[in-house]
Simulated assay, not measured.
Amino acid sequence: MSDVLLDLKDVRQTYGDGQGAVHVLNGADLTVNRGEIVALIAPSGAGKSTLLHICGLLERPTGGDVDIDGERTAKLADRQRTLLRRHLIGYVYQFHHLLPEFSALENVTMPQLIAGESQRDGDRRSRELLDAMGIGHRTTHRPAELSGGEQQRVAIARAAANRPSLILADEPTGNLDPATSDTVFSALAELIRQQNAGCIIATHNHDLARKADRIVTITDGRIQPATL
């Protein structure tokens, strides 16, 4: 098994045609290894969200190759891309997007049921994840009864529920205070190590980015190493 989990080669993304075309990515190359956290920092409008959407198979690039876990995705049909997203990719966003009428446990179990897991096994996996996040005592609480940091830790547990190979996090601590941000990042990092997954975390938080294994940025549509 290769250590390379995500491999982007000469990825381009253009919106519009002719003189009005906007070239967001212009030959972007990036690899992410198993067990690695890559922090992505760049100004607003540089293409961070576009890059994450392409890595998460939510957008098809104009050109280039996106390989995930050895699978060449460029020519896959939409159904195949959906299945890859469901089984290989987990998402954590700035806003937790938890289902308000369900408990923390139910929110984490839901994607497992959709993937065909049994209720019993799904609940057991959910309890393990919530324990790992340090909020096992909050399993029966609904999102409105949880703090912002607790909500994000539930969201991380949900993203990891189906044991994805790749976790994409878009400003996951953007709404949290520094101390809570550190707690949430530590929980995410520990989960990545335990599952030998890979992670791209887009963030404006330079302190958080420094805790990643590697920092990259987007300059003129290309991915470059960055230092802080």
Results as ranks from 00 to 15, higher is better:
Ala157Asn: 10
Lys75Cys: 00
Thr139Phe: 01
Asp213Cys: 07
Pro111His: 09
Leu129Tyr: 01
Ile201Pro: 01
Ser2Ala: 15
Gly18Tyr: 12
Leu146Lys: 13
Ala189Met: 08
Asn205Arg: 09
Asn33Asp: 14
Ile54Leu: 09
Glu128Met: 04
Met1Phe: 06
Thr180His: 08
Ala132Trp: 04
Ile215Cys: 02
Asn33Tyr: 06
Asp3Phe: 02
Val38Trp: 04
Glu59Val: 04
Ile218Trp: 03
Gly198Thr: 13
Leu40Val: 07
Glu106Ser: 01
Ala226Ile: 00
Gly116Cys: 08
His97Gln: 11
Ser147Pro: 08
Val22Trp: 00
Leu105Phe: 02
Phe102Leu: 14
Val11Phe: 06
Thr217Leu: 00
Gly134Val: 11
Arg127Leu: 04
Leu40Met: 12
Glu150Trp: 05
Met133Lys: 07
Ile41Gln: 09
Ala212Tyr: 05
Phe95Ser: 07
Gln194Cys: 00
Leu208Gln: 06
Ala21Trp: 12
Pro111Thr: 08
Arg72Ile: 14
Gly90Val: 12
Gly90Ala: 11
Leu130Arg: 04
Thr50Cys: 02
Ala77Asp: 15
Leu5Trp: 12
Asp7Arg: 15
Lys48Cys: 00
Lys75Met: 10
Gln195Pro: 00
Asp10Cys: 04
His206Leu: 15
Ser44Asp: 10
Arg124Asp: 02
Ile192Ser: 03
Thr183Arg: 14
Leu83His: 14
Arg163Glu: 07
Gly70Asn: 15
Thr14Lys: 05
Gly27Cys: 11
Arg214Cys: 06
Val216Tyr: 00
Gly90Asn: 12
Tyr93Cys: 03
Gly18Arg: 11
Thr14Glu: 05
Gly149Pro: 10
Leu105Ser: 03
Gly136Arg: 09
Asp131Val: 07
Val184Met: 03
Ser186Gln: 13
Asp207Trp: 09
Thr14Phe: 04
Leu191His: 03
Arg127Gly: 04
Val108Ile: 05
Ala39His: 07
Lys9Gly: 08
Thr50Met: 08
Ile54Asn: 05
Val216Phe: 01
Ile167Asp: 04
Gly16Met: 05
Leu52Arg: 08
Ser49Asp: 10
Ala21Ile: 09
Asp121Thr: 13
